[in-house]
Design a protein around this nucleic acid. Structure first.
Length: 583
RNA sequence: GCCCCGGUAGCUCAGUCGGAUAGAGCACCAGAUUCCUAAUCUGGGGGUCAGAGGUUCGAAUCCUCUCCGGGGCGCCA
């Protein structure tokens, strides 16, 4: 709808050749906006003020000139010049009626833009290490990422959702060892579990179900002999490192490797199932092990070497990150010959780009912000643009139960898992609450509020609007009446109540909200919009009876609320929240 | 020390590319409610947009500095 007004302004300016220079460096789409105050009409343009300086004209006079050149349109009732030089547009009722018809015609597609071919977007999110179940922080990443993916698709972009599985490296060895040790305990062995091991109960569960043949006959003394002391007397990293070496030696690389793979695969599958239950589906699970196996990390290092981006120092191989704006050079191969995590990440991001994705979006925890510059540097050094990579940083989640803040200690295994949260408040409330706030705002997640079945709870309030509309149609049937949509369309001009006009205005904003939320990577705009829309509907419901005796007025009102139901359902679908017909 | 994010009503937060009188929910106060769902509704009070300077027709928004809170600055991942 905004586009209609913007087009009128553009046409008017085209008829004013004297202004063409000034117009040239102005993005006209940005000069039209919704008014905040109905007293200013439906849309306002600040184009005259924006052009006034370069055109060296008084803004109000300029606004007058532009208004005179506006083409006639049956969608605009009148225009006014107001304030310092705003042009206010008052749209005709027909403009809103057309929009209602568009909603009904397009249904689930209403608000979506035409599919574009470019840029192809690769959206990577969650990517939690497969060392344990997802916790509430990951839930925010999952909800935000899934919603952003939906928003970008609604904006017409081709999107692939990807989960990068950090299934290589030392922490996988620590996982494998933790499982071995828990299994040995289950067989009656007794020893101090390493401080740096994974201590959660899920490790015992894995130990109970996987194939541990190969470590059956090992006695603990052989494993712990000669291993450096654990904390507090010694160093926990050295201790667990010694245990890993001992385990590989005594069990054999094959047996240990098998346990490690089974353990991580068990956790990875659990994560995938957890996310699927949460409505978060990935197109691809990209394994770091595969990256290494396929030689892509070495290949990336060769390219960097050829481009003279690497050098040796202190026995390690360094990448010249400072040449690309990072604050220091970074190690890619350690003195011990082991490649760093950063080396695989260069290779991974290069690979994303090589697979034809022109725009890469990573959703990362705010604690990873220091990492962004070097990944960008890597991408630049590999011959792509640093700006090809966009990073959205997520701030942390703090759980509340009413006023009480829930302590969460990952170390002690006391963290709340995503699964526990979902079970307590339900998927809908969880998906909704997680995207309620801007990603760069800390999120206070109130479990009590999320569970409440009253209008205090925004997700409830919005779903209730949807269910209420369905209920009205059930009432209609009970009264043995039917809705005639065509008659309703013809009768839309009967909808002249303030509440009806406000509801129509709110509905017509939906495509603009979607576009804005996608462009700004800001799902909270959609959340706020849906709450506003639900509020407009509930207010209307409370003020007027829909099922009236007059056939045409009744059909028209039912047409309006049917359109409302469609928009609420579409918006909730983007967030991943159900739109129930009954509650 | 350097880097990132935040600071807007009592609380939790929106505020688009600079736009007209600063927005919502909760809480609070006052009313209403024989009615398609009380699983409520209507109205009201409440602001030094952290502070100071700058840019301009116009600043919560952009720039500079300061203060406060969170996070990050590994041959960890």
């Amino acid at each position: 709808m905004k586009a209609i007004v913007a087009q009128l302004v553009e046409d008017a300016l085209a008829a004013l050749p004297d202004l063409s220079d000034a117009v040239a460096n102005l993005d006209l789409a940005t000069t039209v906006e919704r008014t905040r105050d109905a007293g200013h009409g439906d849309f306002a343009s600040n184009v005259a003020m924006r052009l006034a300086r370069t055109a060296r004209q008084n803004p109000r006079e300029l606004a007058n000139t532009i208004t005179d050149c506006l083409p006639d349109s049956n969608l605009v009732d009148k225009t006014e010049i107001a304030g310092p030089g705003f042009i206010n547009f008052y749209l005709s009722p027909a403009a809103f009626h057309t929009e209602i018809e568009t909603i009904l015609d397009q249904g689930g597609d209403y608000g979506r833009q035409a599919a574009k071919d470019h840029p192809r977007i690769l959206l990577e999110f969650v990517s939690a290490n497969p060392t344990g179940p997802l916790h509430v922080g990951h839930g925010r990443h999952a909800s935000f990422g899934a919603t952003l993916g939906n928003l970008l698709e609604a904006a017409g972009y081709p999107v692939q959702r990807e989960y990068y599985v950090n299934d290589a490296g030392r922490q996988m060895d620590i996982l494998g060892l933790s499982v071995c040790l828990r299994w040995m305990e289950s067989q009656g062995a007794s020893f101090a579990f390493p401080r740096a091991g994974y201590r959660g109960d899920y490790i015992r569960d894995i130990a109970a179900e996987i194939d541990t043949s190969g470590i059956d006959s090992v006695d603990t003394s052989a494993l712990f002999e000669g291993v450096p002391a654990d904390e507090p007397d010694g160093d926990k990293e050295a201790h667990i490192g010694g245990l890993i070496d001992a385990a590989k030696r005594t069990f054999g690389d094959d047996a240990f490797g098998r346990i490690r793979q089974q353990s991580l695969e068990s956790i990875r599958q659990d994560i995938e199932m957890d996310l699927a239950e949460f409505g978060v589906i990935f197109d691809r699970w990209y394994s770091e092990q595969d990256l290494e196996k396929n030689g892509r990390i070495d290949a990336a290092l060769v390219i960097l070497e050829k481009r003279n981006m690497l050098y040796q120092k202190d026995g390690a191989t360094w990448f010249r990150a400072t040449d690309f704006g990072d604050e220091k050079d970074r190690v890619v191969v350690r003195e011990n010959g082991v490649k760093t995590y950063f080396a695989s990440d260069i290779a991974y991001h290069f690979d994303k780009r090589e697979r034809g994705f022109e725009h890469l979006i990573d959703i990362l925890g705010a604690d990873h912000h220091g990492y962004v510059a070097r990944v960008r540097a890597g991408l630049s050094a590999m011959g792509y643009e640093a700006t090809d990579l966009e990073v959205e940083l997520m701030q942390f989640v703090v759980l509340f139960r009413g006023k009480e803040k829930l302590a969460m200690s990952t170390r002690a295994g006391e963290f709340v898992t995503l699964r526990q949260l979902r079970e307590e408040v339900g998927n809908d409330a969880a998906r909704f609450f997680y995207v309620m706030r801007s990603n760069d705002q800390h999120l206070d997640f109130d479990l009590e509020l999320a569970k409440r079945r009253s209008t205090d709870n925004p997700v409830y309030y919005i779903q209730y609007a949807h269910a209420r509309i369905a209920s009205v149609f059930r009432q209609l049937a009970e009264k043995t009446l039917t809705w005639d949509p065509n008659n309703g369309r013809r009768g839309l001009s009967l909808l002249t109540e303030t509440h009806e006009k406000e509801l129509m205005t709110a509905l017509s904003r939906y495509p603009e909200v979607l576009e804005l939320a996608a462009a700004n990577r800001a799902p909270q705009h959609l959340v706020h919009y849906l709450r506003d829309l639900a509020n407009e509907f509930h207010t209307y419901y409370n003020a007027h009876v829909f099922i009236v005796d007059d056939d045409t007025l009744r059909d028209a009102r039912l047409t309006l609320i049917a359109a409302t139901r469609t928009v609420i359902a579409n918006g909730l679908a983007i967030i991943g929240v159900s739109a129930p017909d009954r509650m």
